[in-house]
Design a protein around this nucleic acid. Structure first.
Lengths: 117, 117
DNA sequence: GTCGATAGATTGCGGGGCTATGCATCGTGA
DNA sequence: TCACGATGCATAGCCCCGCAATCTATCGAC
């Protein structure tokens, strides 16, 4: 991770991976870059973090994968399954419930009008 | 935890504790209840989770505490220090940067208009 | 021909939340 | 009266997860 608090990231990494896979199948390295781009350089997912997540998603049948050996560079393409797409929706809902909950807990602290320059 | 994804909670628990302490000093059990109330019953912080957090905050001088033995029921009151209040502001900013970042990563998925009934 | 970027993967650690447990007090109700 | 549930604080150990470190291999550039 980079400019953001790493502690906060824990738990939403899987959601992010599912999310970047939602607009088409990608291989690992591409997922890293997509996430980096989508997050304005704020999320730099390390390989040692990404691959275990992908393997876990594969085990849970959330993604399906296919080796591409047509080029010299071996690439493993990951694609969301139907279950994965469904799971993504669930996770997005959970995320939004969580954000809403935190907003309530923080109360006025979360209100930008109470944060002077 | 309760109705929310526990994985997501990890990392923001300390922020929540700092937050509930921001409107006056409280003792442990009260903090649990305040958080439960403020979150609409969604956050049920277990004692085994709360006290280690409080001890850590104490070690880091973010809170100061005082035993109250005036009643039969011993209570340990926690109060934010100046450093704690500052830390809370920092954490809130980090939280908002994180939410903003996730919104970017999720893209249209985070857009309520794309979520049909 | 060597170095950096691309590409995939595993191991082991460290940190943090939770379950379980322990101790003590107070109010309620049987 | 005394047992039980709620109040109140605390620690130990398990388990999960992110990450640094490490390994292998290919490709383009210099």
């Amino acid at each position: 991770m980079d400019g953001l608090n790493p502690e906060l990231m824990r738990g939403s990494l899987e959601l992010m991976v599912l999310s970047v896979l939602s607009d088409g199948s990608k291989y690992g390295y591409l997922i890293q870059q997509s996430l980096r781009d989508a997050s304005d350089e704020l999320v730099e997912l390390k390989a040692g973090t990404l691959y275990p997540i992908l393997h876990k998603l594969e085990t849970k049948k959330m993604v399906r994968c296919r080796w591409d050996d047509s080029t010299g560079r071996r690439r493993k393409w990951y694609e969301l399954t139907a279950a994965g797409k469904k799971q993504l929706k669930v996770r997005v809902d959970e995320w939004q419930a969580y954000v809403e909950c935190l907003r309530r807990v923080l109360g006025p602290l979360a209100d930008p009008s109470s944060m002077p320059a």
